[in-house]
Amino acid sequence: MSGKTVVRPYGDTTGDGMVQVSFTLPVPHDKRGEGAALQLAGKMGLDPAMLVHARAMGDGFTFFVVYGRVGHLVDLAAVRVAERDYPLLTAKDVNGAVRRRLRRKLSVVGACIGTDAHTVGIDAILNVKGVAGQKGLEYYRELRVLNLGAQVTVPELVEAARAERADAVLVSQVVTQRDAHLHNVREMSAAFREAFPASRRPLLVVGGPRFDEMMAAELGVDRIFGRGTTPGEVASYLVHALTARRAAA
């Protein structure tokens, strides 16, 4: 990068600061409505603001498109982004990486443990249907997925992981009454530690809306995923963690 660390939006001339925004206001389309749109644009920092399009939608809503100049400066030196410790891969790249580096299918076993019957989370990550437009792990050709469903006991899970030669075990916990999710996960990680030598233990991954992602070590698992996690993130993590582990072994 060049030495320049301060930039402005670019319309057609360096430094012109031009942006385009669109929004809807719950007002009828008339002069007053257009004035309201310009007021909002002004408060958003557009000066001057040009209202280029307004269109009534149904009763009492109007859609606006506004172009204008913003005075704000962007300081590139002050940009801070949360660094993910693994690269986000496409399904194709995940499949490619598994083929290349593991040279066999990556085996995943998933379940809701304890009395938790909420399979929404594990299904969103594993089922082909997926979530938010992303396919679940079943969709990945190089992943072999077994979803045990709800109310699986820890011994059943350990047994399934052994039978499937699981590389990773995914556990979803939604119910948090009396910290059931934390107890269940501790019991699960202890059982896997007992049943497998450290070098052969599957990767333990836990997900649910109420987990603190920083508690992995405390709960004895390799990774915790919180609310809004997508299948692509989980798949990318699995490839990263499992191939790194293999390289270290």
């Binding site: 669109s22 929004f23 269109r55 939608m57 809503f61 859609f63 938010a132």
Partner: peptide, 14 residues
Amino acid sequence: TEAVVTPWLSDRDI
């Protein structure tokens, strides 16, 4: 706005 948000009023209108 497929794959972005559940459709807004304006998305549906457009």
